[in-house]
Design a protein around this nucleic acid. Structure first.
Length: 722
DNA sequence: GTGAATCATCTTTTT
DNA sequence: GATGATTCAC
């Protein structure tokens, strides 16, 4: 049962056992049954997984019987490349796997295989409609809040009826009501959201043993990476897939669990041994990535977490440079200095692929980008879905979605509104009324537009033209996607609208051309390209998927996106209370705070050789220049208050003497109570004045009722005469 | 009835 | 500082 496949010397080709440590070998060569690999950061986990797959194949397992599940599409791509000599292995994320299986077993899952996948934007529109349909007051139940709740239900595999039955408090009752409506709308539109993909798959495995057995025969060996970040639905799916043969290997590190907010449950990895009593546990505690200096810091930080399995970080590299922790006077100085340091690295000939800047929230990239542009440092912001979120891209895609699934009302509404065509709000309302009265979708209603009396004759003709155009596209929708896309761009009039527009539209045209290029790459790389498959694939694209490891550019990304990556030089910025840990984590308890700590831990352990950590004493937050408090995590990694103060004074003095020429000196002090006027906010009364030299801050309560903290040197406040 | 312009709101992390 | 809703002008 716990047998190793064969003795060490017996390997021939792919698996080079000599390169592996004893623990790694154990993980690679344990063949049947359950295996838990508790792998710390930098422990060579990826290598263990790929070697393990090669070892399975060498032991005679067919590649077609192996299924590896990764956390991101990017990780799947990389693994595919490493194992490219062995075709047939299924490697994908949970979500992609679910899409493929749900499409394949659409009948058994009681869905239709051309389902749309709703992204965050579509979900928002849907939930708004659901709130309206449930006749709930939107002020107390915001779409974001409701979606979070619904997502939780789904991740816990609770259907609307289940929630309705168990709801005993007011909030849950209301949420259950909205959830029911939300689900009704999704079904009507033949759409699934991200969570549905998992939920429907889990229910399919639960309700259809025949399908489960078929899948067990297909995937006889299951591997799941980043198991600490699986939610309950994913946990049930993994369990269901492995139920019949028990060949399940999971890897993960509880200390790197950073998706609790998305339903991830560390309990899954902690309970693995009781789920699979025969499980063999391998610990990979050696770290081959970082210097002892960096690891010591990471360890100091993570021991502050109370809810964790004790684990060690064993350094294997020789000692290196100490980590530097720097205080800057403000966020601008922080980004400027980081950029200068990177510029120096460039001058020294450092390969920028080895450099990354990490931060807690996406909005922090902008300032760094500005400095990089100034110093002409090439960079990539790892945040690619933005491309697919662009207006013109969504416009084109809405036609494609409507063609693939004409029940998709959201796609219809978007497509018909891409540019003015004489069909407006009123017509849509009348269509919607007709549609709900006749239990059809909006597109079907439009198809019967000539029978809706309330719509004017001229408008009916316009509707008919639109329908006819879409019907024509449908006839061309088989096979390759790119030609259809190009045709849509030309035929719908979008192209002429964009070309007729002003200068700004050129980038839109370029973006659409890029979209068409990407689609033809899809066409040529996919065995059986189809519109439905294309749409379902791009719906699952994620931020990290755009990361290019050999771009020759500095990488800018959130700490979350940095998971699984490594760099020689890492800069982590914004170590401030409210930012890291994020303010939203400070309100509800210790668990959230511990997750923020793990997030910082993940950031620290991305660094191989040089790590720079910084914070700014002042930062512009939501348009306001505010004083900050250093992150509690900084104290935890051994920085004393005195050292801070020392440093802060130094930077402040230096800053003052250097920059005094650039900025006008703080000429005047404001007195609480006096009247001031602001370009944008109008008249107001000074509430407070903080004398910080040229960084002085004035707090003003404006007549609009808002109170703002403004930096005197930028705010251009004037004193109204009289 | 339609489209443009202004105003107000909210702002983590992501498959 | 972007997105959305409301208002306003045609």
């Amino acid at each position: 049962m716990d047998g190793f496949i064969m003795e060490q010397g017996a390997f021939s080709s792919s698996v080079d056992a000599g390169m592996l440590t004893e623990s790694q070998k154990k993980a690679v060569f344990h063949k049947d049954g359950a295996l838990l690999v508790l792998a710390g950061p930098g422990s060579g986990k990826t290598r263990v997984i790929t070697n393990r797959i090669m070892a399975l194949i060498e032991a005679g397992i067919s590649p077609f019987n192996i299924c590896a599940i990764t956390f991101t599409n990017k990780a799947a791509d990389e693994m595919r490349q490493r194992l490219s000599m062995m075709r047939g292995i299924h490697i994908s994320t949970f979500h992609s796997l679910c899409v493929r299986i749900l499409r394949r077993y659409a009948d058994q899952a009681k869905i239709s295989s051309n389902f749309s996948i709703y992204d965050a934007g579509d979900q928002k529109r849907t939930v708004k409609e659901a709130i309206k349909a449930a006749e709930v007051d939107m002020t107390s139940f915001t779409p974001a809040r409701v979606l979070e709740g619904i997502s939780k239900f789904k991740n816990d595999l609770e259907a609307p009826e289940t929630v309705c039955d168990r709801a005993d408090d007011y909030v849950t009752k209301i949420l259950a009501k909205i959830y029911t409506q939300y689900q009704r709308i999704l079904t009507k539109n033949n759409a699934l959201d991200f969570d549905d993909l998992l939920l429907r798959m889990a229910f399919l495995l639960r309700d259809r043993p025949d399908v489960r057995v078929e899948l067990s025969n297909r995937f006889k060996y299951l591997l799941v990476d980043e198991y600490q970040d699986t939610n309950h639905a994913q946990y049930q799916i993994a369990k269901g897939l492995a139920l019949d043969h028990g060949n399940i290997c999971v890897t993960g590190d509880p200390d790197q669990s950073i998706y609790r907010w998305r339903g991830a449950d560390i309990g899954n990895i902690l309970a693995f041994e009781s789920d699979w009593p025969d499980a063999v546990v391998v610990r990979l505690e050696e770290n081959f990535r970082s210097t002892p200096n960096i690891l010591a810091l990471a360890d100091k930080l993570i021991v502050a977490n109370t809810k964790r399995k004790q684990k060690r970080l064993i350094a294997t590299r020789p000692a290196g440079e100490d980590v530097d922790i720097v205080a800057y006077s403000d966020d601008r100085e922080e980004s400027a200095t980081v950029a200068e340091q990177i510029k120096k690295l460039v001058d020294q000939g450092t390969d920028l692929n080895n450099v990354a800047v990490l931060y807690r929230v996406n909005s922090m990239s902008r300032q760094i980008e500005e400095e990089f542009v100034q110093l002409q440092i090439p960079y990539q912001v790892v945040r690619g879905v933005e491309f697919y979120a662009r207006k013109e891209i969504r416009d084109i895609l809405s036609y494609l979605k409507l063609i693939a699934n004409s029940d998709d009302d959201i796609a219809f509404l978007r497509a018909i509104n891409t540019h003015p065509r004489g069909i407006g709000k009123t017509t849509i309302e009348r269509l919607a009324m007709y549609a709900s009265a006749n239990m059809t979708g909006l597109y079907d209603a439009a198809r019967q537009g000539c029978r809706i009396d309330s719509i004017a004759k001229g408008t009916q003709a316009k509707l008919a033209a639109f329908v006819q155009m879409v019907e024509q596209f449908k006839k061309e929708s088989d096979g390759k996607v790119a030609p259809l896309m190009a045709h849509i761009f030309a035929e719908t009039g979008l192209e002429s609208v964009l070309r007729a527009g002003k200068e700004k539209q050129e980038s839109a045209i370029e973006n659409i051309n890029e979209l068409i290029n990407a689609a033809s790459r899809y066409d040529s790389q996919t065995e059986e390209p189809s519109l439905v498959d294309y749409l379902q694939t791009i719906a699952l694209y994620s931020d990290t998927d755009t990361y290019d490891a050999v771009s020759g550019k500095v990488s800018l990304m959130t700490l979350h996106a940095a998971k699984g990556l490594e760099f020689d030089n890492v800069f982590i910025i914004g170590l401030e209370e409210g930012l890291l840990p994020h303010e939203r984590s400070l309100t509800d308890g210790l668990d959230e705070l511990e997750e923020e700590r793990r997030l910082f831990f993940v950031g620290i352990t991305r660094a191989k050789t040089d790590l720079h950590i910084s914070y700014a004493r002042h930062r512009v937050i939501r348009g306001q220049f505010l004083r900050t408090v250093p992150s509690q995590f900084l104290y935890e990694i051994g920085f004393s208050y005195n050292e801070y103060e020392q440093f802060e004074d130094d930077t402040f003095d230096a800053d003052r003497s250097q920059d005094s020429a650039d900025h006008k000196p703080a000429t005047d002090a404001f007195i609480p109570g006096e009247l001031v006027s602001h370009d944008k906010f109008g008249l107001g009364r000074v509430k407070e004045f903080l004398d910080l030299g040229e960084n002085s801050i004035v707090v003003v309560r404006f007549n609009t009722g808002k109170t703002k903290s403004l930096m005197v040197q930028y705010a251009k406040l004037t004193r109204p005469v009289g």
